[in-house]
Design a protein around this nucleic acid. Structure first.
Lengths: 77, 77
DNA sequence: CTGTAGACTTCCGTCGACC
DNA sequence: TGGTCGACGGAAGTCTACA
C-alpha cells in the first residue's frame, strides 16, 4: 500500500460519507472533477493546500484525514 | 497567515526541536537543502509524500504536524 | 456518475553556485 | 549555517471530449 493509494481510499470513503458525487466535491473544493477521480484512484498526490480544501468540503480536519491515511498504511496483512 | 507559512513555521520549530540543520533534515528526508529553505520560508508547499518523509525524519506523525498547522491557522490576533 | 486521454499551464523539487 | 538565483525535468491541476 503506498501513500497515494491510501489517501485515495480515505478520500473516497469520506466523500461517500458526505453523500457527494466527485463532481460536487470538485466544485465545492474548487478543483477539477477529473483530478478528484485521479486522486481517488491513487494516480496523483495532493499538495498541502489541496488537502486543506478537500478536508473543509468534507467537514473534517486535514489532521483527521492524515490519521486515517496513517492507519491504512500501518495495517499489516 | 496562509497555509504555506504556517507549515513553514511548524517545520522550522520541529527541525530545531530535533537539533538538525536544514542540510541534515534535507539529507535524511531525501530532499534538497534549498527546498527545505523555501518550505520553511513559506515559498513552496509540500506534497503529501514530502510531508510523510519530513515527519518521519522529525520523529513525528504527519497528522501531528497537521494539528500544529491547523492550530497556527486558527489563532486570532 | 465515473474513468480515461491528450494537451496545456503552473508549480514542485533538484542542482550548482555565490553570498 | 542559511538565503537566494537561474535553469531544468517532472508532476500537479485544468479543460474538453468520449465511453
Amino acid at each position: 500500500m503506498d501513500i497515494e493509494r491510501a489517501f485515495g481510499e480515505v478520500l473516497r470513503k469520506e466523500r461517500k460519507n458526505n453523500s457527494l458525487s466527485q463532481e460536487e466535491l470538485a466544485h465545492f473544493s474548487d478543483l477539477d472533477r477529473t483530478y478528484i477521480s485521479m486522486l481517488e484512484r491513487g494516480k496523483r498526490q495532493p499538495s498541502l493546500k489541496t488537502i486543506f480544501m478537500l478536508a473543509s468540503t468534507l467537514n473534517t480536519l486535514p489532521s483527521e484525514i492524515m490519521v486515517k491515511v496513517e492507519s491504512l498504511l500501518n495495517k499489516k496483512y
